[in-house]
Amino acid sequence: MGNQADRSAGEAAPAKNGALITTSGLVKQFPTGGYLFTALNGINLLIDRGEFTGLVGPSGSGKTTLLNIIGALDYPSSGSAVVLGSDTKHLNHKQSARLRNHHIGFIFQTYNLLPVYTVYENVEFPLLLLGMEADRRRRAVTQALEWVGLTDRAQQRPAQLSGGESQRVAVARAMVKKPEIVLADEPTANLDAENSHNILRMMVELNTELETTFIFATHDEKVIRYLRRRITLRDGRVVEDREMEPDYTT
């Protein structure tokens, strides 16, 4: 995997271009059957602009929980997660929604496309939430569809697309507003090898071109090969955080 600069577990990585995301002593507990299950236990991280980072670990290690907290979809039980200068713990529902709407794109394992909308309309949706005017919206959607190579499928509905195409639409939807951060939760879990590599290559290009920070929650080797930084979680703790040389060969 090439050059790997190891960091001790739990120690925050130094900022290069200015940290977009900082977590300090982040703890997340869930009440489960009369006791508190600790999903994240003292996570300290710094994630910079333009990173292509993966949260790696087995099921139940806390990857998705951490991704959700970074995406302001959930709140820490203690500690803090500061995203783009906002401590997510202190954001109300409206402010969290605003943060996600303006700055964060999501890609899900199951694509989560809106079934009654066409491809074009699915990609357009975040821009409608932003209240962008029609002309700019049209240009942005067309560009996003070009990035993912789905211009000719713009009027199709999600049910008419393959898994790979659906995930490309999800990528276009996440990227259309050119967010600072894209959070991808197991984006290739439902895709075959070829589609996975296509999607990942596309993400790398967008990361390079737009300097968007990509954070993955994954345990898929295909994804891990593309990462430039790998944060390994186990039982809610960071056990390894190291930079890597990505391997783009299929």
Partner: peptide, 12 residues
């Protein structure tokens, strides 16, 4: 799930 997607995309 759709409601969750709306929220994730930033819908209040």
């Amino acid at each position: 799930k759709e409601i969750g997607t709306f929220m994730a995309l930033g819908m209040e």
